[in-house]
Nucleic acid binder design. Structure first.
Lengths: 174, 174
DNA sequence: CATGTGTGTCTAATCTTTTGACAATCGTCA
DNA sequence: TGACGATTGTCAAAAGATTAGACACACATG
């Protein structure tokens, strides 16, 4: 089964062509763009399942700052769309910062085609996981209870529920 | 105010000494260990607020596999303790894999002392954030509703609640 | 235009949460 | 040790949320 639309942003048309060929067999639709300027509009129109974003657009500037900035802009506006960053200038600090800023993954040029496909698929799969409300609640309750060393009164306060409610929840989940 | 205990694991005693001096002024207690073998026991005893974990322990093996393996082991057992990885062999792929496996951050040797302190503080702060239950719920509901393009029936199904309940929730949160 | 799907609304029964209370337990500090 | 403060386990009654089921209505699609 083919996975949704991928939006690819890179200032090099040759790269865009290569990506289209590489991803065309796996994904339903590949939308490309050579500049990130209008990216928010494109996203609204195309509803991509994932975004592949290059990090350098100004000739001679290879710091990745631009990519990082667009990552933030897109991620703030569309937190549910996974963004995979791409750069030719591998840099550990940059990669770490990107992931901590919400990037789904970080790939260096030149990439391995199969790897790129896998990375995008993984990112989409992860982003489309849906957790039932009660499971989310149970997990969070356990976590907070842990942080409070089992002190139910304090945990209940922090969770914003009454002590008895927390008491019942942990009793039922056991 | 001094932040809790830091557990540092590195096979080089000189590094451990340097870390102790570097972190001693900022954190309450620095516990060190030259091998990750007994780390789970140490964690149970010391309840560290964060862990600083070197990635290479076998002489001549610098792939970082060992650190990655211990990251997984510790993270599975203590998902609430932030783990900062340290390596002398900077490698983008490795850093990305580490963060995706649950590492809180990734630092390369030689590090900047102030940066190391900041990274650990950030990691601890982030890990000790506690979100009230209703906020968590509201955010998750919005996210799922988004993914379902506003289709309440489907969203309610996926969330494991009735359509009416979801209807009331979104009405109240508006 | 007929059909299927989802919305907005209502009701009555059921379950959950809350507030407040009280004795029992636990740690700690004098 | 003894007293104190904080937390737990438990209960009850009132208030609130969730549920299934129903029904008319809107809306897209064939």
């Amino acid at each position: 089964m083919k996975h949704g639309t991928i939006l690819v942003i890179d200032d090099n048309p040759a790269i865009l062509t290569a990506v289209k060929i590489c991803l065309g067999g796996t994904f339903e639709r590949i939308v490309t763009q050579t500049s990130p300027e209008k990216v928010l509009t494109t996203i609204t129109q195309e509803h991509p399942s994932a975004i592949l974003l290059d990090m350098n657009f100004t000739l001679g500037v290879n710091s990745g700052q631009e990519g990082m900035m667009w990552l933030s802009v897109i991620h703030r506006k569309f937190p549910d769309i996974p963004i995979v960053l791409v750069t030719a200038y591998a840099d550990v600090k940059l990669a770490v910062r990107a992931l901590k800023n919400g990037a789904a993954d970080f790939v260096t040029k030149p990439w391995d085609n199969d790897e790129l496909i896998r990375v995008l698929k993984d990112a989409i799969d992860k982003a489309s996981e849906i957790i039932p409300l009660d499971q989310l609640e149970t997990e969070h309750v356990r976590k907070v209870l842990n942080k409070c060393d089992g002190n139910m009164k304090r945990a209940a306060d922090l969770l914003g529920i009454s002590r008895q409610t927390l008491y019942n929840k942990v009793k039922n989940e056991k």
